Amino acid sequence: MDRRDAVKYISVLMGSALVGGDAFLLGCKSNSGKTDWLSAESVAYLDEIGETILPRTKTPGAKDAQVGKFMQVMVNDCYEEGDQRAFKEGMDKLNDASKKKFDKTFMEASPEQRKELLIAVDKEAKDYQKSIADYNRVEDDKYNKNLSYVRQKKSPHYFTMMKQLTLLGFFTSKPGLTQALRYNAVPGKFEGCIPYKKGDPAFA
């Protein structure tokens, strides 16, 4: 699975365009390698968020793919400034939501509590995405009618970005490609019709 296929896959799966997808396909931007906005503790925090989204089962989980480090690089190198800010603020918002709901930080919460929290936040994110889709469409119309008008687009919900990056990081990682998907490093002859059994993983 190459970058373009991965971006298409995640976009279809999420039902929305991948944030930073264009930059990812073009090799991202140079940001002087500044990743100091995320400490080792923050990367570990993102790993746990990713693991709650994609836990280890019979196949590796998000932590096996080091999605925390992947998110750090993607947000730093491929996100626009507004999206970076929304993502960083979202990390605090999620922790605050955990404290409010369970009187514990996300890292202190049990796996069951983390799952319950993320299910609720995911619903909130889907509702938010629907609301900003119309807003951003209006901003584009204004811009197209008056090119001197500055677009004032809203950033996606922070959890939408976290979820997208978890899926993208996992399915472009070695564990995701070789253990969660059916990996064929050196394909043989082309077979246009292969029987599919329910539960078979997709091909990498």
Rank of each mutant, 00 (worst) to 15 (best):
V43K: 14
K163N: 14
F102V: 09
D127T: 11
L168G: 09
M1F: 05
A44Q: 13
D122L: 06
K154H: 11
M161T: 05
S110A: 11
R182V: 11
G50D: 02
A204R: 04
R137M: 13
D141F: 01
H157Q: 08
A97W: 08
V12G: 10
L167Y: 15
D2F: 01
A44N: 14
V121N: 10
Q129H: 09
C193L: 10
K69S: 14
A40R: 14
F106I: 03
L147C: 01
E116F: 02
M71Q: 13
K58S: 11
M14H: 00
R137Y: 06
F203A: 15
E81I: 04
N136D: 05
R137S: 05
D127F: 03
R114E: 08
V75P: 15
E116S: 10
G176T: 10
K123N: 02
E89A: 11
S16E: 15
G90S: 05
S32I: 05
A202V: 05
R114T: 15
M107A: 10
L18S: 07
V43G: 09
M1N: 03
E108G: 08
F203Y: 09
Q164L: 10
A180Y: 02
G21T: 04
V73W: 07
R3D: 09
G176I: 05
N31L: 01
S16R: 13
F24I: 11
A185F: 03
K115I: 14
K174M: 15
N136Y: 00
L13H: 14
A62R: 07
D2N: 15
A97K: 11
Q84K: 13
K29L: 05
M91I: 04
G50C: 09
G68A: 04
K63D: 07
E89H: 06
L165N: 15
L25R: 09
M107F: 01
Y143M: 12
L147V: 11
A204D: 01
G90C: 11
E51H: 09
K34A: 07
E80R: 06
Y128S: 13
L26C: 01
F102I: 01
D36G: 14
S98I: 02
F190K: 06
A109P: 12
Q113F: 01
P60V: 10
Y143V: 08
E112H: 03
A125K: 02
N136T: 00
A97I: 04
K58I: 00
L177Q: 15
D134F: 03
R151Q: 14
L167D: 07
K8R: 15
T172D: 04
M161K: 04
N76K: 06
